[in-house]
Design a binder for these strands. Structure first.
Lengths: 242, 242
DNA sequence: TAGCACCTATAGCATTGCTATATGAACTGA
DNA sequence: TCAGTTCATATAGCAATGCTATAGGTGCTA
């Protein structure tokens, strides 16, 4: 029951606090629980950390170091934007693995509490984006890009944490990630006009889809399915309703 | 000192809690503070709200209704994407005006606590994006787009709340906002290059048709036909690349 | 051994969220 | 008009919380 691997009490307190924080989902963790699990009495806690919040700050700091270490452990692939993607995914994964810790880190940010962590995280991402900027792949200043991407990254991670694990769809993450990266990257991607898809009616939309379908060879539907699909589409697009 | 405008105690409790929550930045607010400011004793609180968290939930719900009301008060401008921009800015402003309330709403989201608010906010944005989809301006399904945009919106707002008011730079917001909207919109790039950026016109048209069909109750197809039709449509509109 | 800094334990204080119980007010039906 | 019932508030107090004043071991160096 007690966390006594003969580590120094300071460490035992840190681990006990981290464990209780991680397991008791959202419920407040009392100092008595912590000290009991650590096999230590109250004054020891206050001697080492001064405060309950001091202890929690230490836990957060340790967790953040782990996070940073995870981000740094990747060898640069030579494709900076690809590294950013991995960084993003790593961030999300960290949040999903330790949701409680993550919520303390990024969910409870107040200007007087811990903007230092945010600044560090931003610096970490800016560092990577700098390589992309050097390679001429960036549309905006690396710092602005880093702040923007990190903000979206945090938002996505929080949303994913918010929904029950069974319904979590990581597509939200990849989609937002690629949207952000695309927006800051300097890739010259532009094409022809999208036809006349400006009207707002079922008919127009159906006609546009009909034309587009005939032009392209989509293999998402079998030929018999497609035949029926087109027939229905025709029925819709010749209806008077709007 | 006491909040007695002769309102019913329930209201006085709500207002007292909201005021204390808003002003005492991040510090825990005790029930005794609340009841004293409301000019009421403890059991009254528990009679009406059952719990401290029940009271706070009520405060959050009230705040959220205010937020929704603010979002709805805008007359649609006819340009759905422009409405989305206003919606985004409104969201950020709400968060900056009531940071503590916002942190409780979106900073402390746990799967068991309040995903309902997130769902409502998503629905609100999806509703607007549907108009864009009908007009053929959307690249992805409105629901996915709404989730993605809202996630980024929340992330940006949290980051802005995190930094001291004097250093707040709203450019982070506008930049991220436009990046997200650009990424989900079908305007600029389409058709010719369905490689990585910009979906084919088939997909855009299918999404538009899908949204239009759901909006209008076309009776050109029987319900079973429509079901299968929509399924195929979904298959088309989520295909990797046309 | 003595002194000293460091770390930990005993015991308890003030405050916290919450409640068992009782009192009052307002409305009902006769 | 008045007993009965329901709703709403108050009195007083409990267990748990964060924290601390004080004292008691440790291990060092001299």
């Amino acid at each position: 029951m007690s966390l006594d691997g003969q580590l120094p009490p300071k460490m035992r307190l840190l681990r006990a606090a981290a464990e209780l924080l991680a397991n008791s989902g959202g419920a407040p963790v009392s100092t008595r629980q912590i000290t009991q699990l650590a096999g230590v009495t109250a004054p020891t806690l206050y001697h080492h950390f001064g405060d309950k919040e001091g202890l929690f700050d230490a836990v957060v700091a340790a967790g953040f170091e782990e996070y940073v270490a995870g981000e740094r452990d990747f060898a640069p692939s030579g494709q900076p934007l690809e590294d950013i993607r991995r960084m993003w995914d790593n961030h999300v994964q960290f949040g999903l693995n330790q949701p409680e810790l993550y919520l303390v880190m990024f969910g409870n940010i107040r200007p007087e509490s811990r903007p230092a962590i945010v600044a560090d995280a931003e610096a970490l991402m800016e560092e990577m984006l700098n390589k992309a900027a050097v390679a001429g792949q960036l549309n905006v200043q690396p710092r602005e890009a880093a702040r923007s991407i990190l903000a979206a990254n945090v938002g996505v991670t929080l949303m994913l944490i918010a929904e029950p694990a069974s319904e979590r769809n990581l597509e939200l993450s990849t989609m937002t990630r690629d949207a952000m990266i695309f927006a800051v990257s300097a890739e010259p991607a532009s094409g022809a006009a999208p036809g006349d898809a400006g009207k707002s009616s079922v008919v127009v939309a159906a006609i546009a889809l009909n034309a587009a379908l005939q032009a392209s060879h989509s293999d998402q539907l079998s030929s018999s399915e497609l035949k029926l699909f087109l027939e229905w589409l025709h029925r819709i697009s010749t209806s008077p309703a709007g």
